[in-house]
Amino acid sequence: MVFRKLRNHDGTPLVALDPDELAIDGILDENKEVPENQQMYVQRMGKGVYIVREVPNEGTLPPLTETPFVQALASQEALKRTQEESESDLKSGGTVVSR
């Protein structure tokens, strides 16, 4: 886990992003340079939590809930709840029915 320092750039707080990771995602060009008109969207999620997303060329972002990462988290949470409900049913002497 790499920590990045919050820096002051002419009164604007900045955090540098790893260029290798941006290149993996295709955000940087073949020379690992930032494309001239590349837009990024920063969304505050809660205290100290921010999401940074690439803005596609057409300028529209899908809702955060439709991104693969959030969909995967939602699936994991649903599976966890189903397992917890099944365990609770077994402890109370109930019968577990596959859903």
Results as ranks from 00 to 15, higher is better:
K32N: 11
D10F: 04
L28I: 12
E66Q: 06
E85P: 03
Q39S: 12
T95L: 10
E36S: 12
L28C: 09
L64W: 01
D18C: 05
D89E: 14
G59E: 02
Q71F: 00
V15M: 00
T65G: 08
E87Q: 15
S98A: 13
E84Y: 01
T82S: 09
F69Q: 02
S86Q: 14
G48R: 04
L6D: 01
G26P: 04
V2P: 10
N8P: 03
E54Q: 13
E54C: 11
N37Q: 11
Y41H: 15
V97D: 08
V34K: 10
V96A: 09
A74E: 05
T67C: 01
E84L: 04
E36D: 14
V15R: 04
P56W: 06
V2E: 15
R4E: 01
P68T: 00
E36N: 13
R4D: 01
E58Q: 11
L17E: 01
P35L: 06
F3R: 08
G59R: 03
F3W: 07
Q38F: 11
A16W: 03
T65M: 04
L28W: 04
M1R: 10
T67W: 00
Q38I: 12
A23Y: 11
Y50T: 03
Q43D: 09
D20H: 11
Q76P: 00
K80E: 06
R81V: 11
E85Y: 10
I24M: 13
E54I: 10
A23P: 04
Q43K: 12
R44S: 12
I24H: 14
G59I: 03
D89N: 13
Y41L: 12
S86A: 15
P62Q: 06
D29Q: 06
D25N: 14
L64A: 04
L64Y: 03
R99H: 13
A72I: 00
R99G: 13
T12V: 12
F3E: 14
G94M: 06
T67V: 00
I27L: 14
A78P: 02
V34P: 09
G48L: 02
Y50P: 02
N8I: 03
T67A: 00
T95R: 07
V49A: 08
E87L: 15
A78C: 00
T67S: 01
S88C: 11
P13G: 00
E54S: 14
D89R: 15
Q76E: 04
G26R: 04
V42R: 05
E54M: 11
T95Q: 09
G46H: 09
R7F: 02
M1G: 15
E85V: 09
P35C: 08
E30Y: 08
R7G: 01
S75M: 07
Q39L: 13
Q43A: 09
G94H: 11
A16I: 10
V49W: 02
V97C: 04
P56R: 05
E87V: 11
E33F: 09
V52K: 05
V96L: 08
K91S: 08
M40K: 06
V96Y: 14
T95A: 12
T65E: 08
Y41M: 15
E87Y: 12
I24K: 15
G11F: 01
Q39W: 04
Q83M: 10
L73Q: 02
A16K: 04
V34S: 08
D89S: 14
S92H: 12
G11C: 03
N8E: 12
D25T: 10
G93A: 03
G11L: 01
T82V: 10
N8R: 07
K80T: 07
A78Y: 00
D25H: 13
E54T: 13
